[in-house]
Design a protein around this nucleic acid. Structure first.
Lengths: 227, 227
DNA sequence: TGGAGTCGTATTGCATGCAATATTGAAATC
DNA sequence: GATTTCAATATTGCATGCAATACGACTCCA
């Protein structure tokens, strides 16, 4: 189950909990009991678990309340929207530099991921598609050559990942998303930063417009005044 | 000594260590021994300290090596430059929205901070000046109304803070920085997002050009291949 | 002189136990 | 019946102790 069997127990626990949260196996708002997680991980004591929870809290994946324990962070619709606009801004920041700097090897990898993504779509493998999709965006951002940008992008992507995933369950959306990605790849190959920026922006806004509908009644904490 | 006497010991320890690192009282690369910090904080045991160190590591302020302990994160010149370019990108992202959204109250606060900053300059209080300067930039970013953006901006600012501080010790630079800030405020008051963006970008690039000279031989880890 | 091996010490990683706080459920009161 | 009180239980916060790993000094040998 826990394939990440290497590293310290804190590291293993953080990686496993992060995976569970990002993959959506733990619902937003759900309580994370130290003892329960310890047993789940096969007898890990609370000390490394508490350290792992602190790390995840710093990443924004869990929320800690003093003396009251940890819960999976629940984002309001507003907060998800802010995060997505923020991510659009990061990709915009990356677009020009990426078009200027990417190497042939980087382009080849992105094209490969793109083909794989098409394959996942034809095979109707939603999860595989979504993973590949995310990786493509990550690679584009990385191509800009700014490690700080790439790191923050990855972290903030992870935070809102589950809220965006749902959109692709609508088949029309999924189909359009693929088409948008074709144009994104074209803009990249043409090294047209301005065009790439616009393609990416539209892609994400379209995606969220659909995901928001589905997600609002499932995941998003609707109490907007909670914070 | 530790004025932050409230909250859990983990919180207190994290706050105090963060303060020490950001203020520059702990040098980059310096080792942080768990026992030593515990004694410094007046007999705190290692457990909450370890949790605090994990938090700071997630924020990028300290670097943890398994079985080898914690050190204050040392950034290469390249990494600082990437972080500053990233911060410029964040301010660019914020500029348009800030100009569109800021309220009179927000503008009034920024103007007040601006005046205070001038006062600190006239009194040659470098530290107070630098604090006010940072706060102004933070407030501008916050005026954009995106909490994710504001949070990331604050975190990444803190990471590179000490590397930028040095530049203002050059009196010509300090004088010019003030003049640049006057124009930044003008652009903001005119609600001219494009101009504000350019003013901010130039301000930071000018600042780093000077700070880089001073800092390279003091703080920055010159081994560029370390990562 | 230089390098590999070895032992002693210091430090980290983690489990455990206890005190403090929060939560639950039942009894009591209105 | 609804609400408050209070005790029993569960959970978190933190200190301590032990095992494992890393570091430094010393020796030995080429």
């Amino acid at each position: 189950m826990t394939d990440a069997a290497h590293g310290t127990r804190t590291q293993v626990a953080a990686d496993e909990l992060r995976r569970l949260i990002i993959a959506g196996d733990l619902a937003p708002g759900q309580r994370i009991s130290e003892r329960a997680v310890g047993e789940y991980l096969g007898g890990t004591s609370r000390t490394p678990l508490r350290e792992a929870l602190k790390v995840l809290a710093a990443e924004g994946l869990v929320t800690l309340s003093p003396n009251r324990g940890a819960t999976v962070t629940a984002l309001s619709e507003r907060e998800v929207e802010e995060a997505i606009e923020f991510l659009i801004g990061l990709e915009s920041q990356a677009a020009d530099a990426a078009c200027e700097h990417f190497t042939e090897a980087q382009l080849a990898e992105i094209e490969h991921l793109h083909d794989e993504m098409h394959r996942a779509f034809r095979a109707q493998q939603l999860m595989a598609y979504f993973e590949l999709n995310q990786t493509i965006h990550q690679r584009i951002v990385e191509a800009a050559g700014n490690r700080v940008l790439a790191r923050v992008y990855a972290t903030e992507c992870a935070r809102v990942r589950r809220y965006r995933y749902a959109g692709n369950r609508r088949h029309e959306r999924w189909e359009r998303a693929i088409a948008e990605h074709d144009r994104i790849l074209e803009a990249l190959k043409a090294r047209d930063g301005a065009l790439l920026r616009e393609m990416l922006r539209a892609h994400h806004r379209n995606g969220w417009r659909v995901a928001r509908q589905l997600v609002t009644r499932e995941l998003v904490s609707t109490t907007e005044t909670e914070r």
